[in-house]
Design a protein around this nucleic acid. Structure first.
Lengths: 96, 96
DNA sequence: TGAATATATGAACAAGTATTCATATGTTAC
DNA sequence: GTAACATATGAATACTTGTTCATATATTCA
């Protein structure tokens, strides 16, 4: 299959967004439903700042979506592709 | 969803293997069938050395498989999961 | 208004990574 | 055997990336 350089880069960027254990754990938590930054930080045992930085990247790649409510921001999985990539990858890791 | 740290790391490593445009282009070529290192290098416009280094990583993650024939080594996609991850990701990039 | 809370951001440093270059291994042909 | 070829590998360098720390923005409550 021939791929334009631009598409190769876009695809690599998508997988890059999933290429860190912290981000994977954040996404794993979000699979069950939306969560606040604080709850995510507690869930993965990271500072809110580090989580916020990571969420920014995930947001820019359209992997997660933010919903503001009062002073909290709730994050959720943006798109069904994301959950499918996640579970397909998990499948490969488990039965690999 | 709760994920052990080990599984999170494994999953991140899997996606890391797909997180580079050069490797994506290599895999895109291999989607159509096996190819030698030289053909891959020509196909993506990289040196054989650089390609060989990348293939090593892909091999270790069980994303590609090597078959030696004479002095050439032919690479192919190792597992159906890989092709599915690839096309699912491409789908997300195109209709994202 | 001011204090407290929730999140975001910029800069800086440490750790990881892709490519290059030189060299090594293994294979075929002579 | 030697020469030529195909691939692999180690070290070095340049580049990228994740986290921390300090600070900023925004919202609620008193």
């Amino acid at each position: 299959m021939k791929l334009t350089e631009l598409k190769a880069i876009k695809l690599a960027e998508l997988f890059s967004a999933l290429s860190d254990a912290s981000r994977i754990r954040l996404i794993a938590l979000l699979i069950d439903g939306e969560m606040s930054v604080r709850a995510l930080a507690d869930g993965v045992g990271m500072t809110e700042s580090a989580v916020s930085h990571q969420l920014r990247g995930l947001r820019q790649m359209h992997l997660v979506r933010a919903r503001k409510s009062g002073r909290q921001v709730f994050y959720s999985i943006d798109d069904d592709h994301v959950a499918r990539l996640f579970t397909l990858g998990l499948d490969h890791v488990q039965h690999g």
